[in-house]
Simulated scan of single mutants.
Amino acid sequence: MKIAFCTTDGTLIDEHFGRCEQMAIYDITPAGYHFEEMRSMEVIDPSGPHGSHIESKASSIADCAIVYMTEIGGPAAAVVVRNRIHPVKVPKPQPIEEVLESLQHTLQNSPPPWLKKIMHS
């Protein structure tokens, strides 16, 4: 399954979903993971109407099952979920590799029900 990470430098999950200019896309299985691509994203202007921009950003990662970020607003999270992508907020910037290793370990052992559902869809 593909995972998207909101990042400023390609190594850390360190960006807000709306402000994110790029997302690192990885493919992960219980056996391993690998980098797929860096996708450019449209930046959402917080002072303007941004419903269609959020929809566009979510659509651009529609092939991903999960998206990690440092922050996401309620309306944006609803759009992401409606696009069948599971949003995950990290409490502080974290290395993408650490999250991938932890997620791979979870996939190998006992994934929670929400993750099992994603894996089998």
Rank of each mutant, 00 (worst) to 15 (best):
K2A: 06
I3W: 03
I3K: 03
I3G: 05
F5K: 02
C6H: 06
T7Q: 05
T8I: 09
T8F: 10
D9A: 11
G10P: 09
T11A: 14
T11F: 14
I13E: 12
H16F: 08
H16W: 06
G18C: 07
G18E: 09
R19A: 15
C20D: 06
C20G: 01
E21W: 05
E21N: 10
M23W: 00
A24S: 07
I25E: 04
I25K: 06
Y26I: 02
D27R: 06
T29S: 13
P30D: 11
A31H: 15
G32K: 02
G32P: 12
F35L: 00
F35N: 02
E36M: 09
E36S: 07
M38Q: 04
R39H: 02
R39S: 05
S40Q: 13
M41Y: 00
M41I: 02
M41D: 06
V43W: 15
D45E: 11
D45P: 07
D45A: 14
P46N: 11
P46M: 12
S47R: 09
S56A: 10
K57E: 08
A58E: 02
S59R: 02
I61D: 01
I61T: 06
D63Q: 13
C64F: 05
C64Y: 07
I66N: 01
Y68C: 04
E71Q: 15
I72C: 12
G74C: 04
G74D: 10
P75V: 06
A76R: 07
V81R: 10
H86L: 14
V88Q: 14
K89S: 15
K89H: 10
K89V: 15
P91H: 09
P93C: 10
P93S: 14
Q94R: 12
P95H: 15
P95S: 15
E97F: 10
E97Y: 09
E98L: 07
E98F: 04
E98M: 06
E98Y: 03
V99L: 08
V99S: 10
L100S: 04
L100F: 08
L100T: 02
E101C: 11
Q104I: 03
Q104M: 11
Q104E: 13
H105N: 15
T106A: 01
L107S: 08
L107I: 05
Q108E: 14
P112R: 00
W114E: 15
L115N: 03
M119L: 15
M119F: 13
S121P: 12
S121M: 13
